[in-house]
Amino acid sequence: MLDDRARMEAAKKEKVEQILAEFQLQEEDLKKVMRRMQKEMDRGLRLETHEEASVKMLPTYVRSTPEGSEVGDFLSLDLGGTNFRVMLVKVGEGEEGQWSVKTKHQMYSIPEDAMTGTAEMLFDYISECISDFLDKHQMKHKKLPLGFTFSFPVRHEDIDKGILLNWTKGFKASGAEGNNVVGLLRDAIKRRGDFEMDVVAMVNDTVATMISCYYEDHQCEVGMIVGTGCNACYMEEMQNVELVEGDEGRMCVNTEWGAFGDSGELDEFLLEYDRLVDESSANPGQQLYEKLIGGKYMGELVRLVLLRLVDENLLFHGEASEQLRTRGAFETRFVSQVESDTGDRKQIYNILSTLGLRPSTTDCDIVRRACESVSTRAAHMCSAGLAGVINRMRESRSEDVMRITVGVDGSVYKLHPSFKERFHASVRRLTPSCEITFIESEEGSGRGAALVSAVACKKACMLGQ
């Protein structure tokens, strides 16, 4: 009897593995994704193909990295998701002549009506938060230079001027797309009239992360975010950046690689679950690469896999709870928690219980395998993109072996128990001629924006502006 049951459990697990095998990517698959990513990057950089390229390769006008001589107080704003952060950054000489960066910050959550109302409502709310922060720190009387981390696709015309191309991540505030974001912020500050600010720089969160990590390690020339969304930036040779005049030196390019796949480059790798996630998203047909990796989508992918296993009578005796059938019910943090389970399955059992399920031991094991399959594919897909960037940098610099540091931020990278190990191992397999160091950014977005502002202020002083 026991043997029969054991055989049935083994057969069930084997069927589960057959279904989950769809998520496995072979090294040849990853090399294919990497080569296609490089081709799209090239198209994004070139003037004649930029418009139709899915990977936009947006110039950021960040050319210099901090040298350690900029000092002063800077205000930093960070808008990239449902939370908005205001930070005071003091850049100065530390002990023994070292450079020191001290920060104080406060988080504000953005109400739904500000995210989806008008641009005026959104930026009025942001300036209200700045006003509140300055009151708390008794700094209303000071006109501070301000660095703005704005983590949406922007076409820069200068370091302090950028046109919002399109909202992502659930934002829909009308009247912002096609307009200068810094102008919208300046107008809102003017409307309030109770404080003055000098907006000197606007950067993407990947750029802010790279600059913040450069402060720790001067070989950091790539910034990457794996959180709600997924994106990367890197220092490109100016001669390859056709959208900006000049051939000397390097400029940081914001790849906006989340949109890779929007022209069909990933079609052969998309599964039924991916198509369902895409169809029910706020932007169907867009940001397809990001939807395979980002935390906004990972939990939902797992939920759809679990429903398939229920329908195949391989999980929960073929019956799903009402909660499990509800879109968004299986949160991405559950994926991390399930994979963090120590082996007694308590954590998995508790999560499934909150979803109205009474799982068996085998159910718990199957749910864990589903989570591992989805998150491992995410790590491997992400590795193909980064390997594409790094191999490109090595080739354009004609280096036999390139040493490089990548600064990384984002909740999936930082909080998932195995993502970074799987990701690092896969990147290294795909970049055999590179020695890569990964560092995690601390308060990256805010500190990085302030350091970019410090560079901009120093330049302005040198130019006598």
Rank of each mutant, 00 (worst) to 15 (best):
L2M: 08
L2C: 09
D3G: 11
R7H: 08
L20T: 08
F23W: 13
L25N: 10
Q26E: 07
E27K: 03
K32Y: 05
R36K: 14
M37R: 00
M41L: 11
D42M: 11
D42G: 12
G44S: 00
R46E: 10
V55Q: 02
V55T: 06
P59K: 11
T60M: 03
G68F: 05
E70F: 13
G72H: 08
F74C: 06
D78R: 02
L79A: 04
L79H: 04
V89E: 02
E93T: 07
E95H: 10
K102Q: 14
K104D: 14
Q106K: 06
P111A: 10
A114T: 12
A114Q: 07
A119D: 02
F123N: 00
S127W: 04
D132Y: 09
L134I: 06
Q138I: 09
Q138N: 14
K140V: 04
H141Q: 11
L144F: 07
F148T: 03
S151M: 01
V154H: 02
E157K: 01
D158H: 08
I159D: 00
I163V: 04
L165T: 01
T168N: 04
G170V: 01
G170D: 05
K172P: 06
S174Y: 05
E177Y: 06
E177H: 07
G178K: 02
V181K: 06
G183K: 04
L185V: 01
R186W: 04
D187Q: 14
D194A: 14
A201R: 00
M202T: 03
M202I: 04
V203W: 00
N204A: 04
A208P: 13
T209H: 09
I211L: 04
C213M: 12
C213P: 15
Y214M: 15
C220M: 04
V222A: 01
G223L: 00
T228Y: 00
G229M: 00
N231Y: 11
A232L: 07
C233I: 00
Y234H: 02
Y234F: 15
M238S: 13
M238D: 05
Q239E: 13
L243A: 09
V244S: 02
R250F: 15
C252H: 03
G258W: 03
G258D: 00
G261L: 02
D262P: 13
D262C: 11
S263C: 12
G264Y: 10
E268L: 08
E268S: 12
Y273Q: 06
D274I: 00
L276H: 15
V277H: 06
A282H: 05
Q286S: 13
Q286K: 15
Y289T: 14
K291L: 04
L292G: 06
G294P: 02
E300V: 03
V305L: 10
L307Y: 05
N313S: 12
F316Y: 09
A320S: 09
S321L: 13
E322C: 12
R325T: 12
R327T: 15
R327W: 14
A329G: 14
E331V: 13
R333Y: 15
S336T: 15
E339H: 08
G343I: 08
K346I: 08
Q347E: 11
Y349K: 13
Y349S: 10
L352H: 06
L357E: 11
L357M: 04
P359M: 10
P359F: 08
C364Q: 09
I366E: 13
R369V: 10
A370G: 07
C371V: 06
S373R: 09
S375T: 11
M381C: 05
C382A: 12
S383T: 04
G385T: 01
G385C: 04
L386F: 06
A387E: 03
M402C: 11
I404E: 05
V406W: 00
G407A: 10
Y413L: 02
K414H: 13
H416D: 08
K420R: 13
K420L: 06
E421C: 12
R422M: 11
F423P: 07
H424P: 11
H424I: 07
A425W: 11
A425S: 13
S426K: 15
R428P: 11
L430G: 04
E435R: 12
F438R: 04
F438C: 07
I439Q: 06
E442K: 14
E442F: 15
S453D: 04
A460M: 15
C461G: 11
G464A: 12
Q465F: 06
